[in-house]
């Protein structure tokens, strides 16, 4: 009996340790972002400053280009996630419902895109986009991000479609619907959780992407949040309070989307896909 109680205590303690490890960096980010500059160095490793301030946030919002970065990132991440979700639900449906020649070639093609280093594409994509005027443009980023995320999202959507009985659209087709109407009116509404999960994954991915944004974007007007923050860091690497305030702002949309999708994570993500 005591053995069981000890096991339970050890179990809870281990969970707690994981939670602390997971949250501590984010907590520290938040802490520094609300610490007044004069306390930053004097109070060192104290867990919470003796008094707090939102001065850093005010400064970042009013006096820096971060609102622009934030807006750019929001535009890019939203457009990308919507585009990817629409395209990948179509393709995922095809993979889930049709048997056709060339299907395995498509699957193989998409698997290959998941295997090679995306850094390989940095140079050629820059070369391809620049004559089209798509470097230094949010549209260019959206196109690139959409393509990068579509293979994984397609597998994800396929696994959600696989979970919906074929009978339903057959019933709809007998009721008088064409396949596309059945897809739109019967299957899609039932895939809403899957669609939410896909939107969330892609949003987070597009919100976080750094390398291609660094390569394709120069200058502040179309910089995304990661690019802006990194430029800021390398230029003025002493204003820690402001940088962390900006960091917390970058964290908010990602966390919101995470909360939206987290309950589908375990059922949804692994159903057919093993990639992050």
């Amino acid at each position: 009996m005591t053995g069981r109680i000890l096991m339970t205590i050890a179990h809870r303690a281990a969970i707690l340790a994981y939670i602390v490890f997971a949250l501590f960096p984010l907590f520290w980010l938040l802490k520094v972002s609300v610490t007044p500059n004069d306390l930053l160095y004097s109070e060192g490793v104290r867990l919470w400053p003796s008094h707090t301030t939102f001065e850093h946030y005010r400064f970042v919002i009013e006096n820096s280009a971060f609102p622009t970065f934030f807006k750019n990132s929001l535009i890019v991440a939203c457009s990308t996630s919507v585009a990817v979700t629409v395209l990948s639900s179509l393709a995922g449906y095809a993979l889930s419902r049709f048997r056709f020649r060339g299907k395995y070639a498509i699957v193989a093609l998409m698997l290959i895109t998941q295997m090679f280093p995306l850094v390989m594409l940095v140079a050629p994509i820059f070369k391809m986009l620049s004559p089209l005027g798509l470097t230094n443009s949010l549209t260019g980023l959206v196109i690139v991000y959409t393509a990068f995320n579509v293979p994984f999202a397609t597998f994800l959507m396929q696994s959600f479609f696989d979970g919906i009985p074929k009978d339903l659209e057959e019933a709809a087709m007998i009721d008088g619907a064409s396949r596309f109407i059945a897809f739109r009116q019967i299957i899609l509404p039932l895939t809403l959780p899957g669609i939410a999960a896909t939107l969330g994954f892609v949003f987070t991915a597009a919100w976080s992407e750094l390398l291609f944004a660094l390569m394709l974007i120069s200058g502040n007007t179309s910089a995304t949040f990661p690019v802006g923050l990194l430029t800021f860091v390398s230029k003025f690497s002493v204003d820690f309070g402001q940088m962390m305030a900006a960091g917390v702002m970058a964290l908010i949309p990602a966390c919101l989307f995470f909360l939206l999708i987290q309950r589908y994570l375990v059922q949804g993500l692994t159903a057919g896909a093993v990639k992050g």
Partner: peptide, 14 residues
């Protein structure tokens, strides 16, 4: 199927 004007009852009811 939609043009055949038949109705079907499925095992799973669908």
């Amino acid at each position: 199927p939609k043009d055949r004007d038949i109705a079907m009852v499925f095992q799973s009811y669908a």
